[in-house]
Computed example of a mutant assay.
Amino acid sequence: MNRIDTHQHVVPPRYAEWLRDKGIEPGGVAVPDWSEDGALKFMDGHGIQTGILSLSTPGVHFGDDREARRWAREINELCADLRDRRPDRFGTFATLPLPDVDGAIEEAAYALDVLKADGIVLIASYEGRYLGDETFRPLLEFLHERDAVVFVHPGELPAPPVPGIPSFTADFLLDTTRTAISLVLSGAMERYAGIRFILAHAGGFVPYIAYRIMLTMAKEGLAPSLDVLKKFYYDIAISATAAALPSLLEVADPGHVTYGSDFPFAPPIAVDLINAQYEEYPLDPALRTAIDRGNSEALFPRLKGKP
């Protein structure tokens, strides 16, 4: 029992009720129930020592900056309290009230400096703008200066959903892919090299279309290279399968792959299915150890050596 789970969600009951009142089903999935005891029980049953908690899509902003700031502060303080009580079992990615950039910088400073959050969670796109957009430059500059770990989680595409196909099926993967390409083409990966970006779900389609991304770089006058894609970190939540791992491991830096579960949006039975494939996949033992824990210890030094 030693895994560090960099893709585990918190769903505070008040927040869950707020989403349900709005009729929101994130990714086409009903808002799941969550509790501290339930999270610990899940982790104990899946070899997870520490879960780094993050708020999933849709975040906290529904058109009212002041309301979004209040919700971000409430959730971040709740998670910090949970982490402080159980520092060996929980970590926190602080949520921000984007697309309110000024509010996001203020909350990021509070979360990192006062609450001592382990990092920040960003949704891949906000109001149709991806993270390489100039709108977010002040925030990225701030996070670069703080050498922040930034977990990038997908959201709804800025396009109508396809009837009968939940957005978590494919749209989420495209949303992550688009924002990764946006960060590459905008030069953000070089300009804000202090940020360690973790892309959810093995980077969406990024590994599979790596050479298409290189062709696009050339078209845009950039030197095509896989090196920029190796700067990203990638979690393996709902992606640790014999179909997906070969592409990921071909593209990713071996030191930049982390374990992820996607609990509670992925129920235990789904995690069991993916873990069974992951545990049977013929990985070098040292690489498996690095994915399960070592690579995350490098990102979060406070967890190094925890039992």
Results as ranks from 00 to 15, higher is better:
residue 258 T to N: 12
residue 281 Y to W: 02
residue 88 D to L: 03
residue 214 M to Q: 08
residue 196 R to A: 06
residue 49 Q to L: 10
residue 269 I to T: 13
residue 273 L to K: 09
residue 22 K to Y: 11
residue 44 D to G: 11
residue 248 L to P: 05
residue 262 D to I: 10
residue 137 R to Q: 11
residue 93 F to V: 05
residue 42 F to G: 03
residue 306 K to E: 15
residue 190 E to D: 09
residue 15 Y to K: 09
residue 209 I to H: 07
residue 88 D to W: 04
residue 107 E to N: 13
residue 130 Y to H: 05
residue 125 S to H: 11
residue 52 I to N: 15
residue 155 G to L: 00
residue 65 D to Q: 10
residue 186 S to M: 14
residue 117 A to I: 01
residue 260 G to S: 11
residue 153 H to Q: 07
residue 200 A to C: 12
residue 278 Y to N: 08
residue 133 D to N: 09
residue 76 N to T: 08
residue 10 V to N: 03
residue 202 A to I: 04
residue 60 V to T: 15
residue 123 I to G: 03
residue 119 G to D: 12
residue 264 P to F: 01
residue 232 F to K: 05
residue 266 A to N: 03
residue 166 P to A: 01
residue 53 L to H: 09
residue 296 S to Q: 01
residue 301 P to I: 05
residue 125 S to Q: 08
residue 108 A to K: 10
residue 215 L to I: 00
residue 36 E to P: 02
residue 70 R to K: 12
residue 244 A to C: 09
residue 290 A to M: 07
residue 9 H to S: 01
residue 246 P to F: 04
residue 134 E to M: 14
residue 84 D to M: 10
residue 187 G to K: 00
residue 245 L to M: 11
residue 94 A to K: 10
residue 107 E to L: 13
residue 277 Q to W: 01
residue 78 L to K: 15
residue 127 E to F: 00
residue 140 L to N: 04
residue 182 S to L: 14
residue 52 I to W: 13
residue 30 A to N: 14
residue 278 Y to W: 09
residue 181 I to F: 06
residue 27 G to F: 02
residue 280 E to D: 06
residue 178 R to H: 09
residue 236 I to T: 08
residue 203 G to D: 07
residue 80 A to H: 03
residue 146 R to K: 14
residue 210 A to R: 14
residue 144 H to E: 03
residue 38 G to Y: 01
residue 9 H to P: 05
residue 127 E to G: 06
residue 152 V to R: 00
residue 204 G to V: 12
residue 148 A to N: 00
residue 295 N to D: 07
residue 263 F to R: 03
residue 265 F to H: 02
residue 225 S to M: 02
residue 269 I to L: 15
residue 17 E to Y: 08
